[in-house]
């Protein structure tokens, strides 16, 4: 049953209606939208490459998305794509790229496992025991975030930015143009609701 559902979601990816823009000034300017989409793609590719480079250099190196996002900013700083945005805005976009990247990787991982696991990832090291679930957990979070976006777009952006992009409270407040107190409040409620959803999905 779950398998089926997972599959439907993947297939559905290619013909989705656009979500409400979270930055209204973009909606009014198609060329800006395009520029941001380009930046999004470039960021995705850069993050992915960085993740791999880091790993190749040192298999035990920590993949810290915040660090990756910062590094991506430096790499892309020279590109024309970045001209459309501020650093903060970039982090916001990078957060979504990171989300997509992790979701894709998690899907592949799930698929591998279902297809008999061509790669051996099982480890008997105790500290890693719970880790193989991360992929599934992440996919569940991804789905729940979409549901949250329907209930409250602002909170969905908030979670995406904070969790996937490592934006801190003041940055999140600035992105969403709300007070820090509101961010704290929204975050607490959203987190609780998402935790509940994740528990349900298990």
């Amino acid at each position: 049953m779950r398998k089926r559902e997972e599959k439907t979601v993947t297939a559905g990816e290619n013909n989705l209606p656009p979500q409400a823009f979270d930055m209204p000034e973009e909606a009014a300017r198609p060329e800006l939208r395009r520029a941001i989409d380009d930046l999004f793609c470039a960021t995705y590719e850069e993050l992915r490459r960085l993740a791999s480079t880091v790993r190749r250099g040192d298999p035990n190196a920590t993949l810290n998305p915040t660090a990756l996002v910062n590094e991506a900013w430096i790499k892309l700083a020279k590109s024309s794509e970045l001209a459309v945005t501020s650093r903060l805005h970039f982090k916001r976009i990078a957060a979504r790229a990171m989300r997509q990247l992790l979701v894709e990787a998690a899907r592949r991982r799930n698929a591998d496992k279902r297809n008999g696991g061509s790669r051996i990832t099982v480890t008997f090291d105790g500290s890693f025991r719970e880790k193989p679930c991360d992929a599934k957990n992440l996919l569940a979070l991804n789905k729940a975030l979409d549901t949250l976006a329907d209930m409250s777009p602002r909170q969905a952006i908030m979670v995406e930015s904070r969790f996937f992009g490592g934006l801190d409270i003041p940055e999140t407040a600035a992105v969403l143009k709300v007070s820090e107190a509101t961010v704290l409040r929204d975050w607490r409620a959203a987190k609780a609701w998402l935790a509940r959803e994740l528990r349900e999905s298990n």
């Binding site: 979601v9 990816e13 290619n14 013909n15 823009f21 941001i36 989409d37 729940a144 549901t147 976006a149």
Partner: peptide, 20 residues
């Protein structure tokens, strides 16, 4: 139209808006 997953597109399918 609608094909690429761009910044504005959702990451996932349109989740059913169901809570319990």
């Amino acid at each position: 139209l609608g094909s690429p997953v761009s910044f504005a597109n959702r990451i996932n399918g349109p989740g059913s808006i169901q809570l319990w």
